[in-house]
């Protein structure tokens, strides 16, 4: 074997013979992912303005709200066993799950290895580091737990769907709750659909529903499911970006309405 191992002259970072604008795509990814991470971290630490009184609106970053001071909290206010010197926000309790889901997503992995870690920054362009362990070793070998995050993400979808339903109820002047549709309702409903498409187009799901088998012709239900997930999977990257944008916008919307900067327009 050793006789025909290859010896290549390594290129330095950014060195390439490519003449096109190869740096545009990684730059856009860097800006897109970077701003989302910054905004969502900031928003998660706020612990305020994540719901709108008098409406059912709840920011998806804060859902499900396990403990908190809004009426959406499932188990009441901040429990005493959480040390008070720790920064507390309902989002911090749950955001690791959707965050981990995206972090270990096959699409995002490929995207941020390129844009954030330059490994490689673009195809056929030199890299900054010589050493390379890929996902073969710790820590990146942990990416293999993606399917567990998928289970959580599917579980979360039910909460988000419930939030979209809650967003259809508004408190009238006499204190009763009436059905209605505001712009926020549309935003939160769009959010659960986008996240649904993203989650259901997951590569791990595609494997689990049918990809694991070589013969599907004798398993009609799995075959159908595999076909559906596969056709969504072709657009996984698109869903990844749309859902990222929409979930971020949902939080911004609820936040600004709750702060009184934006007025929620009622359609029905």
């Amino acid at each position: 074997m050793a006789s025909n191992l290859v010896s290549i002259q390594r290129r330095g970072f950014g060195q390439t013979m490519r003449k096109d604008t190869w740096w545009v795509a990684p730059l856009l990814t860097f800006i897109g992912l970077g701003s989302f991470v910054l905004y969502s971290t900031w928003a998660a630490f706020q612990g305020a303005h994540y719901w709108v009184p008098g409406t059912g609106y709840l920011s998806p970053f804060y859902s499900p709200e396990l403990f908190g001071n809004s009426p959406h909290a499932l188990f009441g206010p901040q429990p005493s066993w959480i040390p008070s010197w720790l920064p507390f926000s309902p989002a911090l309790l749950i955001l690791w799950a959707p965050g981990g889901f995206r972090f270990t997503c096959y699409y995002y992995r490929g995207a941020y290895y390129k844009a954030m870690w330059a490994d490689p920054i673009a195809c056929a362009v030199g890299e900054p580091r010589k050493g390379y362990r890929g996902e073969n070793w710790f820590p990146l070998i942990l990416q293999n737990i993606h399917r567990y995050f998928l289970y959580l993400a599917i579980f979360f979808l039910f909460f988000l769907a419930y939030d979209a339903w809650s967003a259809m109820w508004f408190q009238a002047a006499d204190g009763t709750w009436r059905f209605g549709v505001g712009v926020g309702t549309l935003v939160l409903t769009a959010n659960v659909f986008c996240l649904g498409f993203y989650t259901l187009s997951c590569h791990s799901l595609r494997h689990l529903v049918g990809g694991v088998y070589d013969v599907l012709s004798n398993k009609p239900i799995r075959k159908k499911a595999y076909g559906c997930v596969s056709s969504l999977n072709k657009r996984h990257m698109l869903f990844a970006w749309i859902s990222l944008f929409v979930v971020g916008f949902s939080d911004i919307y609820v936040r600004l309405v709750s702060m009184g900067i934006w007025t929620d327009y009622r359609i029905i």
Binding site: Y106, R109, D119, R133
Partner: peptide, 11 residues
């Protein structure tokens, strides 16, 4: 076969 070396960057 070292499949873990692939970091799915799709080139």
């Amino acid at each position: 076969h070292g499949i873990g070396y692939c970091n799915i960057t799709k080139c």
